[in-house]
Design a protein around this nucleic acid. Structure first.
Length: 312
DNA sequence: AGGATAGCCTGCGGGC
DNA sequence: TGCCCGCAGGCTATCC
């Protein structure tokens, strides 16, 4: 389930194969997987040039769970991996096996040390690709609705959205217009670390809670990036490598098991159509002053980050 | 208008 | 062995 850390790993592992390189060929194998617009923003059939054929890639950007490819001549596209999307680097003549089913886009990249393909596959097709004649139109059409990137989450971002709101705190964290990049896994993990109940009305968030929660969101995401992301089912980066953050998860996927802090059986509930796992004691609501200590101190988080090397 | 809900889509594991 | 069902969930459209 690619969320911000997994998407960032894809961006980081894709970058050396694409930045400064020329796209010699771009193929869309499934027409309905990509939407394109002309200079006036009107929908049109996708052409290879829309998918950056002939362009030199200037940079790869990311906002939340979306990645953008920006060409030197201004053309731009962005994509979302949805639930099952993968963007894989395949060297020409290489031995690396890539499943050939569910492939929707293939970019061929020229390089002095040999050509390669960048293969976008997405079995469940919850993801997609959107192309634009210029970067500004991409920002306007696709990224303007997104909140600040969750790696830079602040207490103010949360408090602004939470003010007067009765929606569940977890639903707020999952709202991409509040913070871009948090998904079901990291929402549960951050709320557990912050000892806040997922069903708590967002409007009850105090400035102190918000500061703590924002800091934990940043640190949990940063640590996961450093560890290569969380591989639950089929997530791998562009080099086909799974992530090692899965073993760091304290509540996600552990319903019915014991809380690592207090041994209480973790409960499962549904919030906003999403499975939510939480500790009814550590994350008590209404709050209880004498709740036990859960093992997710900031020092422990920092240790996890420092022990890993963040790629550039 | 904020907030909740259906629907998209495939693969997989459990139960029979 | 094989089939059916439930479940996984990011996002958009739609409804209340």
């Amino acid at each position: 389930m690619p969320e911000l850390p997994e998407v960032e790993r894809v961006r980081l592992t894709l970058a050396p194969h694409m930045i400064g390189k020329v796209v010699t060929r771009a193929r869309l194998l499934r027409a309905d997987y990509c939407e394109s617009v002309d200079e006036r923003g009107r929908a049109r059939r996708t052409k290879p040039s829309d998918l950056l054929e002939g362009a030199t890639i200037a940079r790869l950007d990311r906002r939340g769970k979306q990645i953008a490819m920006i060409a030197e001549d201004g053309r731009a596209l962005c994509f979302h991996l949805g639930m099952s999307g993968q963007v894989l680097h395949r060297p020409r003549g290489g031995r690396r096996e890539i499943p050939s089913d569910h492939v929707h886009v293939v970019w061929t990249i020229a390089a002095s040390n040999g050509a390669c393909d960048i293969v976008f596959r997405d079995p469940r097709r919850f993801g997609g690709v959107w192309t634009f004649p210029n970067h500004a139109l991409m920002l306007e059409r696709r990224w303007s609705e997104l909140g600040p990137d969750a790696l830079a989450a602040t207490a103010e971002d949360l408090l602004r959205a939470a003010a007067g709101s009765r929606r569940a705190l977890k639903a707020l964290l999952l709202d991409q217009s509040v913070l871009a990049g948090v998904g079901n896994i990291y929402a549960d993990e951050a709320l557990y670390a912050a000892r806040l109940a997922p069903q708590m009305p967002a409007g009850e968030l105090t400035p102190r809670d918000a500061a703590n929660l924002a800091g934990l969101v940043r640190e949990i995401l940063a640590r996961s990036i450093a560890l290569g992301g969380s591989s639950l089912r089929d997530y791998v980066d562009a080099e086909g490598m799974p992530g090692a953050n899965t073993s760091m998860l304290k509540v996600y996927g552990r319903a019915g098991e014991a809380c690592m802090g207090c041994e209480t059986k973790l409960e499962r509930m549904v919030i906003g159509q999403r499975t939510t796992v939480w500790c009814p004691r550590c994350q008590a609501y209404p709050r209880v002053d004498s709740s036990p200590i859960c093992p997710q101190s900031k020092s422990e988080l920092r240790k996890g980050v420092k022990q890993s090397v963040i790629g550039s």
